[in-house]
């Protein structure tokens, strides 16, 4: 339950969170390293959870924080490990390793 804040402050906070979410969503698509992309998708989920709190939906915010930022990240990371894409450095720049980001 957020306190009754000034509306200008609330709008400003929403603006900052929306900007953070959109930037990390773009980062998911353009980052070379798959681990970083999974981490960025976790950031998207956390930001959306904060937006749910701003929208007075605490149940949904809890679920999104637990599932989206925790469980979904774990599932995707385990998938990365079994796919052999778990590499911390992007020294190998073959197209298979680079992960075929959109070539627009």
């Amino acid at each position: 339950m957020i306190p009754d804040v000034d509306l200008d402050l609330q709008t400003l906070f929403a603006l900052v969170m929306v900007a953070l979410v959109l930037v990390s969503a773009v980062l998911v698509l353009i980052l070379d390293n798959m681990i970083s992309a999974v981490a960025a998708s976790g950031v998207v989920s956390l930001g959306v959870a904060v937006l749910f709190v701003l929208l007075h939906a605490p149940d949904v915010a809890m679920t999104e924080a637990v599932v989206g930022a925790g469980l979904s990240g774990v599932v995707l990371a385990l998938g990365l490990r079994r796919l052999g894409l778990w590499q911390l450095d992007a020294t190998d720049t073959s197209p298979e390793r680079r992960g075929g980001k959109p070539d627009a």
């Binding site: 998911v28 798959m34 989920s45 998938g79 990365l80 075929g100 959109p102 070539d103």
Partner: peptide, 14 residues
């Protein structure tokens, strides 16, 4: 627009 199936899954999450 992505060429990698795993990135498609990430885009689906978004």
């Amino acid at each position: 627009m992505s060429n990698h199936l795993f990135r498609m899954v990430l885009a689906l999450v978004i």
